[in-house]
């Protein structure tokens, strides 16, 4: 009975994963297809679409823009997320629940609305159409993820630890860099990878705000509107590889946190 249930469970999980990943896998498979059209039978292995996208200046620029935006966003968002989580850990103040709700709010706002709002606002202050403008939007969107990760880590930190450091002669500054930051380091790295992934994949805000400075997802949509090219598959495969790498790194770091927390409690 238990064996049957186990088999059913494994089969169900396998089907679920197949359903989720089939489109992605087909994208990757057909990105290596020599034929012009994504249809079976396969026309043979080829890297021509990859060669094509690396020779396309607009795609290259999109990729560079995406990398710049993701690289800057992940640093700023993680710094802000860490700060917000530390304030929550360290202080008790009036309106703290409101503070936390507001800090966690951006991902719950539909991105279209966030995009329009950012466009209007950034248009007024002259940020619209710049990479800085996109970065601002992505920071707004991804900071709550960073905060959530760091908060999870800080929840495992004995509140006496910080005072113990003061008691041993560490100033608050030395305590921050000698105790709090090292303790949060796995969560900080996880937050860097996760926010980079959020930014790298993000389309809507970038589409509203980017103007001529297209990021890769925006470029992909522009291409799709023109013609369906197998180059899309190649771009898709690259974007997927980058994102999944970032997410896996984040997940591994979080796993090590959870494992250690479980050992400590166990």
């Amino acid at each position: 009975m238990a064996a049957l249930r186990r088999i059913l469970l494994i089969a169900y999980t396998a089907l679920l994963f197949a359903f989720i990943f089939a489109p992605i896998v087909s994208t990757i498979v057909f990105s290596f297809n020599a034929d012009r059209f994504p249809s079976l039978p396969w026309g043979g292995f080829s890297l021509q679409w990859y060669a094509a996208i690396f020779n396309d200046a607009t795609i290259q620029r999109g990729l560079v823009n995406s990398l710049i935006v993701a690289g800057v966003t992940c640093v700023i968002a993680t710094f802000l997320g860490f700060s917000a989580a530390y304030i929550d850990y360290r202080y008790r103040f009036l309106g703290k629940s409101v503070y936390l709700a507001l800090a966690a709010l951006p991902p719950t706002v539909p991105v279209v609305i966030l995009g329009v709002a950012l466009l209007t606002f950034e248009g007024r202050i002259g940020l619209s159409g710049t990479l800085t403008g996109i970065i601002v939007g992505h920071v707004v969107l991804s900071t709550p993820f960073a905060m959530a990760l760091v908060r999870m880590r800080l929840a495992d930190l004995d509140p006496d630890i910080e005072r113990a450091a003061w008691n041993l002669g560490a100033t608050p500054w030395a305590t921050m860099f000698g105790v709090i930051v090292p303790f949060c380091l796995p969560a900080i790295f996880a937050a860097i990878f996760l926010t980079a992934a959020v930014s790298f994949d993000e389309f809507m805000i970038a589409w509203f705000v980017s103007g001529v400075n297209e990021t890769l997802p925006v470029r992909v949509l522009a291409m799709l509107q023109g013609q369906v090219s197998p180059r899309i598959n190649a771009i898709g495969a690259i974007v997927f590889a980058v994102s999944i790498t970032l997410i896996v790194f984040a997940q591994v770091l979080l796993g090590s946190i959870a494992g250690r927390a479980a050992r400590r409690k166990g």
Binding site: L157, D158, D160, A164, N167, A170, F183
Partner: peptide, 26 residues
């Protein structure tokens, strides 16, 4: 006035040696 805490409050990410050295380092 160093304090020995009821919860010990040792630094969880440091080795025993680094814990003992912490105050001296400060």
């Amino acid at each position: 006035a160093p304090l020995v805490w009821q919860s010990y409050a040792l630094f969880p990410f440091l080795s025993v040696r680094k814990n003992v050295e912490f105050g001296l380092k400060q």
